[in-house]
Design a protein around this nucleic acid. Structure first.
Lengths: 210, 210
DNA sequence: TTATGTCTCATACCTTAGTATGGCAACGTT
DNA sequence: AACGTTGCCATACTAAGGTATGAGACATAA
């Protein structure tokens, strides 16, 4: 039984391997420090029984890795591993087909049980995801704020996060300042921000990178 | 030989324990998930030979934990553990007497060697800290930007990070808007920011919380 | 083809942010 | 008592941010 496991921290890989080895007798753990490495190893060899993906890998941003894995291995349960506990990201991952969302804070026995659950074909949802108690367990919020942004808006946002002024952004993108403002107004609406500073905060909270 | 080890992620504790056990024959590893737990366990019992502190613990912010440990156990090497590789934080930790700064990305053998180094009374400085090549190994930047803030400035900064407008901040603190501006101008100078958005970015980068 | 979405820019307008300079009061240190 | 720091406020000003509305160019999907 092959398990692909990508995390850029060796300590974490070492720690989690302890649990993975206890999942079955014939476990083969394939470790990777980057997404591309994990992807290559997943393709090259027998089909994996489970894929574990850290959300913060050096060569991908956000949920892209999850989506690529899902596209290539639609029937293999893919579990997202993260230190981030924000409800938004949990929902986002589950919406994109993750078979589970494992907080790194999860205790030993809970971690093992969660992994067994996933191997059994279930979806593991950390209790935090339902804290806000707004409905049945099934209806994850389909509005992942960051994913609704257009490429240009993303680009503007990245400059925003660097603290650049509209004028500077305009120069960098070779467009007029007023156009930057238009992008920003739309950006704020999508992120439910009322100003640029709030937008930066929200974007960083939701794991924006790049 | 007692080693105190605080990290809120069980996986990390498990992973690092593997290396710690290999440091000597009679190693007793005392794990803790919070700073207070670690502090209590450190005091209660024989003096520890080494203290390992994650920078992001639920009950402390920033370098406070390091300082408290240093104050109570000035002769015990205290190593900071972090996933954050920013030069600023490395320098800040070393300035406050840390015996080393261990990135969680550190590979197995390197991790072991770094720990041995510290146990031998040396200071482990990750190579990243010196990347900018500005001088000899000894001159860490003494300007920890966040620590130079006054209490009021911190308070203003916390509102800033929430994306609140000057007017709102003024109302929240029950002072005039112009006073908020004065605080901000000083804040920007200390953080080397040119506007509020940049200040938020810098503060978050440097691990500001509260 | 029509419709939809993205990106661009414009005019007009108002609000907010930020700087410079200086004064006043409270507090703790030397 | 003199000093430094912090915190509060003021006037005056310039610069930047943000909204509303409309419109043309382009590409792509229905």
């Amino acid at each position: 039984m092959r398990i692909i496991f990508a995390d850029d921290h060796e300590v974490v890989r070492h720690g989690l391997r302890f649990y993975l080895e206890r999942l079955a007798d014939d476990v083969e753990i394939v470790e990777a420090g980057t997404f591309e490495e994990a992807f290559a190893k997943a393709i090259d060899g027998p089909p994996p029984a489970m894929i574990l993906l850290d959300l913060r890998l050096p060569d991908i941003q956000g949920m892209d890795g999850l989506e690529r894995m899902r596209a290539r291995f639609p029937r293999v349960p893919t579990v997202v591993l993260s230190g981030d506990l924000s409800q938004i990201r949990i929902k986002e991952a589950l919406n994109r087909g993750a078979a589970g969302y494992l907080p790194k804070t999860l205790g030993g026995k809970a971690m093992l049980r969660a992994l067994e659950l996933v191997m059994a074909g279930e979806t593991f949802v950390p209790s935090l995801a339902l804290d806000e108690g707004n409905g049945t367990a099934g209806d994850y919020d389909p509005t992942a704020p960051l994913s609704s942004l257009t490429p240009r808006e993303r680009e503007v946002l990245s400059h925003l996060i660097e603290g650049r002024a509209n004028k500077e952004i305009a120069r960098a993108l070779d467009i007029k300042e007023i156009t930057v403002k238009v992008h920003l107004t739309k950006l704020f609406r999508k992120l439910k921000a009322t100003n640029r500073t709030q937008a930066v905060r929200i974007a960083l909270d939701h794991g924006f990178s790049a």
